[in-house]
Amino acid sequence: MSDLINVSNISISFTQYVQGLNQRELKVITDLTLDINEGEIVAVLGSSGSGKSLLAHAILGILPHNANLSGNMVYKGDVLTEELKKELRGKEIALIPQSVNFLDPLMKVSDQVIGECADEAEEKEKRAKQRAIFEKYGLSEEVDDMYPFQLSGGMARRVLVSTALLSNPKLVIADEPTPGLDEKSVEETLNHLRQMAADNVGVLLITHDIDAALKVANRIAIFYSGYVIEVANASDFSGEGENLLHPYTKSLYKALPHNGFELTKGHQPLHGEIPVGCPYYERCPHKLENCDKERPFLFPIDENKRVRCFKYEG
């Protein structure tokens, strides 16, 4: 396995105007570090509103124009500049969006997924390819001429997945592909992701569904208040959770239904109310002396695992 993409120290913020002309930086993601290998599924797990979609948009270079992005990304050894993102998106890097709302309501499905064609030859080729992939995902020929609102939930799901595969991507970013689906469709969608990974595609699965993440991912990055506080192997979520490092991850694991729903008191600090020190300080049962004064780094444990906690530093 070799590194497909390396995201290091990414921060995303918005300039907000509060009370007239007073500007304020609203930091949504801070200091995010993540890497994905070929054929690997990495899940980013975070509650909704924590900036997961923004991470996806940052990698694709489609952030809203009032967003500020800092940090580095390296794709297959090349610095991922905005120009390179523009070149790669829709080709080597593809997005599977969350819902049918991401399809143009006034355009027939096949017309929009093949995109603009320079001439008839290109169109013919693209249509043939689209048909083949749709076929593989059980989408009959009728679907080609449907408008998005005519698709059933399951059909829409498969259209979105097959759209991503149209360009033979190397990296697929799936943004919340499972919520709102019945168990069977969730399983089907996760199988599609597994299939992609088996074809050596790197998959970034963005989700707030820990079950889905545990089912398919090789590694899981845990978001807390805009920070990645731990990157763990999916296999670490087993037994008593003894291989999990960060106190928050441990508590997440204990809160799972089969582990007895043990909830931790308190709430995640929102953007803007994050303390100077460790974002988990308030709720942490193992606070150390300078946890509230200094912010821990995302500390590498081994090749795959990382944790942002002073307990494991040094």
Partner: peptide
């Protein structure tokens, strides 16, 4: 231009005037 479908069209690699024509003007 700030809708989800416009964003996704962009994510699929559509850009500039083509993007405006195909998904902006149409809508």
């Amino acid at each position: 231009m700030s809708t989800d479908y416009f964003l996704f069209a962009k994510a699929r690699g559509e850009d500039g005037w083509t993007l405006i024509k195909r998904h902006g003007i149409r809508n």
